[in-house]
Amino acid sequence: MRRILPRILLGTICVLIALWLVAPTLVVVPMSFAEQKSLVFPPSGFSLQWYENFFTNKQWYGSLIVSLKVALIVALLATVLGTLAAIGIERAKGRSAGILRAILITPIIIPGVVMAIGIYAVYLDTRLVGTLTGYVLAHTMLALPFVVIAVGASLSVFDARLETAAASLGASRLSAFFTVTLPLILPGILSGMLFAFVTSFDEVIVSLFITSPQATTLPVRIFASITRDSDPTVAAVGSLTFLATTIIIGAGLLVGTRRGRSK
């Protein structure tokens, strides 16, 4: 009896916390099918007008296209730069490698608004405000730490002797890397890439400062919509991104567990 009571208590607390974590996100879903033109809960009626509005209003779907473009380039760029850096740090070890690693992770710690006004100041001088290049450079910098951390984590459990073994069996350094090291650290690289994509797709603070009417990213568009009017199209966008990420993560989990089983 004494052992069961704490368990029930812990279970109840955890269910409540899990609800508190997940439920607010789900509130957006019923709102997106509402008939009324306000964000009042509970929604009344049923309509698909807000989804229709999203896909027919150029301001909305245009910003989605900008965000997707930027996030895809950022995912590739940050993954290449971050993976190279993580490998360099892992190979070099020592004090200077530790310092470099700390430097590469600082973008996470710098307060967003400070970073934003700094980048805005530099972009004003270099005419990068509201350009794809501007978004890509800023987001890649912000995404870099996540790739370095993810790839670094899989490199730290990677046995470097495997590469030496491949080299001793006659493989060149390059082919040893591509046939031995790369496949083994691939999960780390892929999760870093996913993180980089999400970081860019989700980034709002820096984007808010460097945005322009010609090229607005989706989060900036959502932010503007929330502060200006209570347009339920926002709820439709939120539900769509929620659905998309759920599918991506679900697929990732399925692949992951299948891999785990086949081992």
Partner: peptide
Amino acid sequence: WVSGVVRTLAWVI
């Protein structure tokens, strides 16, 4: 995994 802005909107609601 859900957009930070959308999550904040949910809290507003």
